[in-house]
């Protein structure tokens, strides 16, 4: 299984599934991080503790733990 955490800088992926608890899932969805959305990884801190992604035209920062809950596939 591939998650967003496995992605490197500048890689583009499509969201397959969100494996997050309800509240967080809703938050992700309201940010546009939902099934079939395209995500690009822009930057991450050295240990991937925090990741900056681009979804649509919006840049979002999230932690590695959250990225792990986002199941993705390469495009």
């Amino acid at each position: 299984m591939n998650t967003l955490l496995d992605c490197h800088k500048a890689c583009r992926v499509r969201v397959v599934k969100l494996n997050a608890p309800t509240a967080l899932k809703q938050r992700l969805i309201s940010f546009g991080i939902m099934k079939n959305a395209t995500i690009e990884v822009l930057e991450h801190t050295p240990a991937k503790s925090t990741i900056e992604i681009k979804v649509g035209k919006m840049r979002v920062a999230l932690r590695g733990e959250e990225a792990k809950m986002i199941e993705v596939e390469k495009i």
């Binding site: 997050a20 967080l24 938050r27 992700l28 940010f31 840049r59 920062a61 999230l62 932690r63 959250e66």
Partner: peptide
């Protein structure tokens, strides 16, 4: 437990 961190980065 820790709160998730999801934040918009404005332009």
């Amino acid at each position: 437990v820790d709160e998730p961190f999801v934040m918009e980065m404005p332009k």
